[in-house]
Design a protein around this nucleic acid. Structure first.
Length: 448
RNA sequence: CGGGGCAUAGCGCAGUCUGGUAGCGCACCUGCUUUGGGAGCAGGGGGUCGCAAGUUCAAAUCUUGCUGCCCCGACCA
């Protein structure tokens, strides 16, 4: 993409309403614009990031055996009355009337809808277990939206729902999602730590929040150092195998957010292993048994012919929130530092002297070569000053920068700069191209 | 919802107290010079001063009402 043809409104100054760093950078780097309180428009660059995050979530859900579908944003109040939540939910739910005065609402979540769909479509235990998910916009009329897309009112969320015949099976579904989340966040370059969360009406240990560590995170978290060293499972993992040992590794050590922190318990962790950090919640998995299936009559016939109320769980990932969360976890004074897996473009190509025939030709040629190698490129071909281009490129945070200027061209070289480290190398065109291709190949291998 | 604050050009702000031709910096456009980390000079475009009523010869400025937005708290992916 040539920057001269792109839509990328950058801001030099911080808009005053933006308090936290991710919000500031998202506005400055032209990722989003606020539409009204807690509601954002995604500009082209931001939309690319959002799509990439969404795609990673999708791939890892599919890998775990979950099935993608799509439910509407607008729901009928009827099913919410069935579950009893229409009264309970309160003002967070945006209620709407249609032209016939029918009570509608903009969905804050989808348990009722999916339960109704599943109930109407499944009658036999043979059709269990199933995990269904969708990635859809939600609306929760937060009392006070803040932190940009991290706590918006409208947000993009992946929500999965599991349906099982028995508690034992439900735990297996839960474990699949648990492991899937480890992989999902790891692929985004994040260190995520599952932390025990408020358990549902059933009790037990089947609720976890997935917290990513970021110095500027919203809440204080405490955990055992060993958890930081744990690696997410590789792509060859068999989701139908027994996942309990894996889960045990990840849940055996102390980990809690400030809300659930138990100082006495934490003090039993050897002092050198105690980590106190800041974190952001990006996912939440939850088993809730028959909370919805019971009142809504979601039953299947078991092997013995008896009707059994299905066991359910739900599993959320804040997709739009992740954009902010990743920036919180990965930025410096100059701007965003995108992990390669979610970066809006792989490479930023800077032509330092637009209008100079030799430089133009060299930059154009390299642009073509990068595109031919299936790398996505944002090519700064604007007639602007070098300093302005460097600053802009650092701000938007693409993992690699290629700098083409008359100085390097004299010796047949261009510069490759790694955004994360700032390290720059003068290389021949070929060497630079090979380095970038190698890095992309490596990234694709990690994803697969 | 309680407390506090803000609303003037795309962004950041001054002007409001004490009513009298709407300003500054950055960004944007044109030209010249410049050109490897946000250049210089000159010229230029852009604002129903959040909205509505009122007071007044005259309102960004005073009065009243409304709306939007932000911050702190309780709530949350």
């Amino acid at each position: 993409m040539r920057l001269s043809r792109y839509f990328l409104p950058l801001l030099r100054d911080d808009p005053k309403e933006a308090e936290i760093v991710s919000h500031r950078l998202m506005l400055r780097a032209g990722l989003v614009r606020q539409s009204s309180a807690g509601i954002y428009s995604w500009l082209p660059l931001g939309h690319r990031v959002l799509s990439r995050i969404e795609q990673i979530v999708r791939e890892e859900q599919d890998r775990a055996g979950a099935l993608e579908m799509l439910m509407p944003t607008i729901q009928s109040a009827e099913i919410w009355k069935e579950s009893g939540r229409y009264e309970v939910y309160g003002k967070e739910m945006l209620r709407i009337s249609d032209r016939h005065e029918r009570e509608m609402l903009y969905g804050p979540t989808n348990e009722e809808l999916i339960t109704a769909i599943f109930r109407d479509g499944v009658k036999s235990y043979k059709e269990l277990p199933r995990i269904l998910y969708h990635i859809q916009w939600k609306f929760r009329d937060e009392i006070r939206p803040r932190f940009g897309v991290m706590r918006g009112r409208e947000f993009l969320m992946k929500d999965s729902y599991s349906f099982d015949l028995t508690l034992e099976d439900a735990r297996k579904s839960y474990n699949k999602m648990f492991v899937s989340y480890l992989r999902t966040f790891s692929r985004m370059g994040l260190k995520s730590i599952p932390m025990a969360a408020e358990t549902g009406p059933i009790g037990g240990d089947l609720s976890h929040e997935f917290i990513i560590l970021a110095d500027t995170g919203e809440s204080e978290v405490f955990c055992h150092r060993d958890l930081l060293a744990l690696e997410a499972p590789g792509p060859d993992l068999d989701y139908d195998s027994d996942l309990t040992p894996l889960i045990r590794d990840w849940t055996g050590k102390y980990a809690a957010t400030i809300e659930k922190h138990d100082a006495a318990h934490f003090s039993k962790v050897p002092e050198k292993d105690r980590v106190t950090a800041r974190g952001i919640e990006v996912g939440h998995i939850f088993f809730f048994g028959t909370k919805y299936s019971e009142p809504m009559g979601c039953k299947v016939q078991g092997p013995d012919g008896d009707l059994v109320t299905v066991q359910m769980g739900s599993y959320g990932i804040g997709v739009s929130r992740l954009v902010g969360a990743i920036i919180e976890a990965s930025h410096d004074d100059a701007g965003i530092i995108w992990p390669a897996s979610v970066a809006p473009f792989d490479v930023g190509l800077i032509n330092l002297k637009v209008g100079d025939a030799e430089t133009d030709k060299a930059a154009d040629d390299f642009y073509a070569k990068l595109e031919a190698a299936e790398l996505s490129v944002l090519y700064d071909d604007r007639d602007d000053r070098a300093g302005a281009k460097f600053t802009a490129m650092d701000l938007i945070g693409l993992p690699w920068q290629i700098i083409v200027g008359p100085k390097g061209l004299k010796s047949g070289e261009i510069e490759l700069k790694e955004r994360a480290t700032g390290v720059r190398h003068s290389l021949t065109f070929e060497a630079a191209l090979n380095r970038l291709i190698a890095s992309a190949t490596k990234a694709r291998k990690e994803a697969a």
